[in-house]
């Protein structure tokens, strides 16, 4: 078993029968699950199965229409105050990085702390530089996103999310837009983050990463969780036909 020593038994995200429609299209069909503090969950599944939509409901970039989501004791409703609280507790890293191109890497990171956490500029910059150091790119602080490589951009994006001191980090295919030689530098940073005890929900097809880091692998298909298990069981002894097919296809690559 790869049960992580950081994982406690306190739930931090509780999803009860979560449904989501895009107009008539039923994307999430009743997701019920609980993530514990410090847990690392890897979410995989075919394209269009609702993985992104699911993790985006957790910081309310998408609204769910039925069921309940409770994040660190705060229920996600239309209450603006709750939404703002949640967004400070939940960091997100996107497939396309989404760095702000008109701001230097440092300013990308300090924007949230200065404007939302109300830190002084000096304090925010100190923290940002420390984060860039941790990401191994301290020397890129004063460049613009367009001047650094994809792998470096994604690490700036991770630093930007961490600068808000979130309790939970969401990753939506963080390495899918990267050239192969840059994938490992981003995974290394995520691995380090995992060991630091962060609660992480990671949508990825990096099966090596999943085996090594995840406490649980969830398999999505057509808006439902078809199967979930610890990595060893998931990869070596999948129960469902669709899971087996998916694993064999993914591992062939």
């Amino acid at each position: 078993m790869t049960e992580n020593e950081n994982t406690s038994n306190d739930p931090i995200i509780i999803c009860e029968d979560v449904h989501k429609w895009f107009d008539d299209f039923h994307v999430l069909k009743g997701i019920t699950t609980t993530f514990k503090k410090g847990e690392k969950a890897v979410i995989c599944g075919p394209s269009g199965s609702g993985k992104s939509t699911f993790i985006r409901t957790i910081n309310r970039l998408e609204e769910h229409q039925r069921g309940t989501i409770i994040v660190d004791g705060i229920e996600l409703t239309n209450d603006l105050r709750n939404i703002n609280l949640i967004r400070q507790e939940v960091g997100m890293v996107f497939q396309q990085f989404n760095l702000f191109p008109h701001l230097s890497n440092l300013k990308n990171i300090t924007l949230g702390p200065i404007r939302v956490r109300k830190l002084s500029k000096r304090k925010a910059e100190e923290e940002a530089l420390a984060l860039l150091e941790r990401m191994g790119i301290a020397d890129q602080a004063y460049k613009y996103p367009s001047e650094i490589s994809g792998g470096q951009q994604q690490r700036v994006a991770i630093a930007r999310a961490l600068a808000m001191e979130p309790k939970i980090m969401l990753f939506d295919e963080p390495t899918s837009a990267l050239d192969p030689e840059m994938i490992s530098e981003v995974l290394d940073v995520m691995r380090e983050l995992a060991h630091s005890g962060m609660t992480m929900l990671v949508v990825t097809h990096e099966m090596g990463f999943a085996r090594e880091v995840a406490d649980r692998v969830m398999f999505f298909d057509e808006g439902v969780v078809v199967e979930e298990a610890v990595p060893a069981d998931f990869f070596d002894n999948p129960q469902h036909e669709r899971t087996k097919l998916f694993i064999s296809q993914t591992l062939q690559h």
């Binding site: 910081n59 970039l61 703002n84 967004r87 400070q88 939940v90 960091g91 997100m92 996107f94 396309q96 989404n98 760095l99 702000f100 924007l111 949230g112 404007r115 939302v116 994006a157 930007r160 999310a161 600068a163 808000m164």
Partner: peptide
């Protein structure tokens, strides 16, 4: 994505 990233850091 720009709007989403901004909202995600709490702006």
């Amino acid at each position: 994505g720009q709007r989403e990233a901004a909202r995600a850091v709490g702006l």
